[in-house]
Design a protein around this nucleic acid. Structure first.
Length: 173
DNA sequence: GCGACAG
DNA sequence: ATCTTGTCGC
């Protein structure tokens, strides 16, 4: 069965609400991954075509051990919170062209830091069965204290309860 | 009620 | 996302 994108926003929201509960938040996660895949998408100037690229690195040496590209069309209009539906098909097509199965996915866009706790990284991880981390360049939800300037420093992303209302229950800190 | 809103 | 312009820092 070929992938069918949601017909509209309402259906996309239903899909997220249905898949959200299937995200594994308690498994071991990316324990000592030997290979890490980075994923991103670039658009044509006209915006009606896109190319998804996946590069797999040896986690220890950072040597490129595999790579793949797929070209296609955005599968959904850009809607904040529904961004995954736009790029997911092309990203999955590129992943299918890999000759190896990476141990970890790192994608351009959020994962759990999402209004319904189901951003692109969650969607990718669920569909592929691989551990996935989302790396958003700009915030979508949450507030935070600026991390220390040292490389590797971090602070928690705190999310106002209102974002999770009716979605994921209490205690989302 | 209005604005903000990953890429 | 992509384009454009201008500014700043190395």
């Amino acid at each position: 069965m070929p992938y069918q994108p949601p017909a509209d926003v309402a259906e996309a929201l239903r899909v997220q609400d249905e898949l959200r509960s299937r995200v594994d938040l308690v498994g071991p996660g990316p324990t000592a991954p030997a290979t890490v895949a980075g994923l991103d998408v670039a658009y044509a100037e006209s915006g009606d075509r896109l190319a998804a690229a996946v590069t797999v690195l040896d986690a220890a040496t950072l040597a490129v051990v595999d790579e793949a590209v797929s070209v296609g069309r955005p599968a959904f209009d850009y809607v904040p919170g529904l961004f995954a539906f736009r790029e997911l098909p092309a990203l999955l097509a590129a992943l299918e062209r890999l000759t190896i199965r990476p141990d970890l996915l790192v994608c351009d866009g959020h994962g759990l830091a999402h209004p319904r706790r189901f951003g692109l990284a969650c969607h990718l991880g669920l569909v592929t069965g691989l551990p996935a981390i989302g790396v958003g360049k700009t915030p979508l939800v949450g507030v935070w204290d600026e991390p220390a300037p040292e490389r590797g420093a971090s602070t928690p992303l705190r999310t106002a309860a209102r974002w999770w209302a009716g979605c994921c229950g209490p205690g989302t800190g």
